[in-house]
């Protein structure tokens, strides 16, 4: 579903990603962890070309998206993204946020888009907030709306960049619960997270990014109990 080959990204002289080659299969849930500044966000953002790789290839469904010849808008419609700071549209209601993509990109009829939107809001437990503006919501509620907005495009892949890092501790669980439900639906997920318990429970695989290198790529059982690399050991000692 997603494959990277020797993916490199530099910002000026700073090499942020160094030869990342990996694959995320259809239906897999992959947690990307590692110290801050290790390149996790950049890696995730290279997958939908929010950052353009300096070198290397990114294949989505077998299509190389780095050639400059593909319509990246089409690819992105199939890859939802959830951000650390939610990025809800503040001038639109919760329902308008969720239906915006289906209406303006997929050109669904309004009634159909709203039904889809309300269904998704019900799934994330926010049906009663449909007509509220985002500013009226708590952080956890905002993030659940952001998840619903991404899901409204009915993507096969979901990318999450530290979805709970900006939340007060008491709101982390409600967002993680939504993501757990989602993981069970068989959608492909790539999640940058610092929630080790969540990663261990939900992920099929852990990617450990450190200093721009993929230092470890292992199932959670192995990664958390018996990591190969020194750096991963040190990291786990600190966070666990």
């Amino acid at each position: 579903m997603i494959r990277t080959e020797f993916l490199c990204k530099s910002f000026g002289k700073l090499d942020v990603l160094k030869d990342i080659s990996t694959e995320i299969k259809k239906g897999e849930v992959v947690a990307i962890i590692g110290p801050s500044g290790g390149g996790k966000s950049t890696f995730l953002r290279c997958l939908n070309l929010l950052e353009v790789p300096t070198r290397g290839r990114v294949y989505i469904d077998g299509v190389d998206i780095t050639t400059g010849k593909v319509d990246i808008k089409k690819i992105r419609q199939n890859m939802g993204m959830v951000f650390q700071h939610f990025n809800l549209f503040p001038h639109k209601t919760v329902l308008e946020n969720v239906t915006y993509g289906p209406l303006k990109v997929k050109h669904l009829p309004k009634a159909e888009a709203e039904k889809l939107g309300l269904d998704l809001l019900a799934k994330v437990g926010l049906a009663e907030k449909a007509n509220a503006y985002p500013s009226r919501l708590s952080g956890g509620q905002k993030q659940r709306v952001a998840i619903a907005r991404a899901l409204a495009m009915q993507p096969e892949i979901m990318l999450f960049d530290e979805p709970t890092s900006a939340l007060d501790p008491e709101m982390v669980k409600e967002v993680l619960d939504v993501m757990k439900d989602l993981a069970r639906t068989g959608i492909t997920m790539a999640i940058v997270t610092h929630e080790m318990g969540f990663a261990r429970e939900v992920a099929n695989r852990i990617l450990f990014l450190e200093g721009g290198r993929l230092a470890e790529d292992a199932p959670p059982d192995i990664f958390f109990t018996n990591p190969r690399s020194e750096r991963a050991c040190q990291f786990l000692e600190k966070v666990l």
Binding site: R76, H85, N87, G101, K104, A146, A150, M153
Partner: peptide
Amino acid sequence: KGQREAAMTLGVTYPLMMWDIILPQ
């Protein structure tokens, strides 16, 4: 700039993103 990125990840075209998301704000 998160507003732009959110619109881009939905696959919205540039003119529509400007008109619906960026300019109103």
